[in-house]
């Protein structure tokens, strides 16, 4: 059965698109049929981060409106087997995504893919709700910073009230915290919230910590998902996130023993 995963945060600029690209690529690298969908109608960017912006012909809204087929809109990644991208539309019409239309496209994708990753727009408006509505699991991308943590808490509230699983009284969405732009040194100095602090405040299981890294910007400059950079500390951290998501305990890294302490207490 296909799983729908929303990558969301409330606040903008925390790393949703970077995470969507890295996470979807990581799942595909593990051999899973994976599609990543850009829900940011009007401000599409996933195509740029994935490096396929010049191959966009038809988009998500075209498919919903019947102006192009799903097969025409899906872009096959040239580097990773099993990985597809469904780009967002550049239309200014915010209500172009309808619940019925999104449901129909997701239903068609479910037959073909094992994982459907939904890259949510920032905010708590229509687009963000469309991205989370049909989700089975949610990655809540958070920076160790007050406004991001507060917005993540709002999003957690919406996941448990405004989604299909909530409305239809089904098993609730599985929520995971993903801390990004983490700087160990600043945490040690006491001028950045620690993973433990954020985990305690938001009270959902931690899937991983992505260190702040210059390689993330370099990768997006080049249109390469960070999980394809074998040298990048952030890329390695994302691969560990994928492993943990798939239920594996990744090999312990030195100096990070306190991470594993958090994970083992929260995930088991």
């Amino acid at each position: 059965m296909a799983k729908i995963i929303v990558v969301t945060s409330g606040k903008g600029g925390v790393g949703k698109t970077t995470t969507s690209a890295a996470f979807a690529t990581g799942l595909a690298l593990r051999g899973y049929q994976t599609v990543v969908i850009d829900f940011d109608v009007g401000l599409r960017n996933l195509d740029l981060v994935m490096g396929c912006e010049r191959r966009v012909v038809y988009d998500f809204v075209n498919v919903i409106n019947g102006e192009g087929s799903l097969n025409q809109a899906l872009i096959k990644d040239r580097r990773v087997e099993n990985l597809y991208i469904l780009p967002a539309s550049q239309t200014r019409d915010k209500d172009a995504l309808t619940l019925k239309g999104v449901a129909r496209v997701l239903e068609a994708l479910r037959k073909r893919f094992e994982y459907i990753v939904c890259d949510s727009p920032a905010g708590i408006e229509h687009g963000a709700i469309m991205a989370m509505y049909f989700a089975d699991e949610a990655l809540i991308v958070t920076n160790p910073e007050v406004s991001s943590v507060r917005d993540s808490d709002r999003i957690i509230g919406m996941l448990s009230s405004k989604t299909r699983r909530a409305v239809q009284n089904m098993q609730p969405i599985k929520e995971y915290l993903l801390l990004t732009r983490y700087i160990d040194k600043r945490v040690d100095r006491g001028d950045m919230l620690s993973a433990k602090d954020v985990g305690e405040i938001l009270a959902i299981p931690m899937l991983g910590i992505i260190p702040e890294s210059p390689t993330v910007l370099q990768a997006s400059n080049a249109g390469i998902p960070i999980t394809l950079d074998k040298e990048s500390d952030a890329g390695i951290a994302y691969l560990e996130v994928v492993a943990r998501f798939l239920g594996e305990e990744p090999p312990e890294r030195e100096k990070k023993s306190f991470f594993t302490r958090i994970f083992s207490s929260k995930l088991t």
């Binding site: 910073e145 007050v146 808490d153 709002r154 509230g157 100095r189 006491g190 602090d197 405040i201």
Partner: peptide, 25 residues
């Protein structure tokens, strides 16, 4: 107190407040 400690305390208060508004809506 370190600024991170201040941040944590402020967030705990605001998040508790946000959550108390949630349930009864």
């Amino acid at each position: 107190d370190s600024t991170a400690t201040v941040a944590k305390e402020r967030l705990q208060i605001i998040v508790a407040h946000q959550r108390s508004n949630r349930g009864s809506s």
